[in-house]
Computed example of a mutant assay.
Amino acid sequence: MAPMYTAVATSVGRDGRSYSDDGVLDLTLARPKAMGGDGAGTNPEQLFAAGYSACFASALQLVAQRMKLDADDASVTAEVGLNALEGGRFGLSVVLRVELPEHLHNEQGRQLIEATHQVCPYSNATRGNIPVELVVE
């Protein structure tokens, strides 16, 4: 299977820098204050939250179009938790908060979210690996 698109980024350290090969992305990385850092940059969890919410929002528009629904005003917020696991390991958890237009505050809106969860590449990558909770707001 050939990729439709390949993104390339390089990161140096948890307190370092992350940048894309085309120069569009160039970010300072820093531990969040909640983890004892100075919070003077972004972190992998924020980057994952931004990527997942953007991907889910894009997939939502595609699925809404397929279902002939107007979801142009929808927004997606991802809350990514960094969790301590046994044996000194770490894992992630995600809550996706989807704010739908008022006319989709019904079963049709719930079906849209569930169908989007099946289409979104991030959802497909995380399914069975980390807990993802879908919340319609």
Rank of each mutant, 00 (worst) to 15 (best):
G23I: 04
A40W: 01
T116H: 06
T10G: 13
C55P: 11
S123F: 12
L47I: 00
A30M: 10
V135R: 15
D15S: 05
E79F: 14
M1Q: 08
R17G: 00
L62W: 14
L27V: 06
R14V: 14
A115F: 06
Y52C: 00
S20L: 08
S18H: 10
E133N: 12
H117Q: 05
S75P: 02
E86W: 13
D70K: 03
S75W: 09
E45D: 09
L69V: 01
K68H: 00
R66K: 13
A59E: 11
E79N: 09
L96M: 13
I113Q: 02
N106V: 05
E45V: 07
G37M: 05
A115S: 15
H105V: 03
H117M: 07
A34K: 09
E133M: 05
S58W: 10
P131A: 08
F56P: 00
L62S: 09
D73T: 05
R66A: 12
L69H: 02
R127P: 03
S58I: 09
R17N: 06
G36H: 11
A115N: 11
R31Y: 12
N43W: 15
L60A: 04
Y122V: 12
A9G: 11
Y19E: 15
R14C: 03
K33L: 09
A78T: 04
P131T: 09
S58T: 15
V8T: 14
I113M: 15
A115Y: 07
E79K: 14
L47V: 03
L60N: 04
T42I: 10
D21R: 12
C120Q: 08
D21A: 10
A84H: 12
G36Q: 08
E86P: 00
A9L: 13
R97V: 12
D22G: 01
Q111P: 00
N124M: 11
N106P: 08
L29S: 01
T126G: 08
L85P: 05
L27I: 01
P131C: 04
N83R: 12
M4W: 15
V76N: 06
E137T: 01
G87D: 02
V132N: 07
Y5F: 15
L85R: 14
N124S: 08
G51I: 11
G91Q: 03
A2Q: 15
L104A: 02
G39D: 04
G37K: 07
D15M: 05
A78M: 04
D72G: 03
T28R: 13
R127A: 14
Y5Q: 12
A64Y: 03
V94H: 05
S93D: 07
A50I: 08
E102M: 08
L60S: 00
E102N: 10
A57I: 06
S53E: 07
D72E: 10
P32N: 06
G51T: 14
Y122R: 06
H117W: 07
G109Y: 10
M67K: 15
S58N: 13
L27G: 02
E114I: 12
E86I: 11
R14D: 04
D21L: 12
L60G: 03
G128P: 03
S11T: 15
V136S: 14
F48K: 04
D21G: 00
P44V: 01
F90G: 04
A34R: 02
Y19I: 11
E114A: 14
A71F: 01
Y52I: 03
P101W: 10
S11M: 12
N83L: 10
C120H: 00
G13M: 13
G128L: 14
M35V: 06
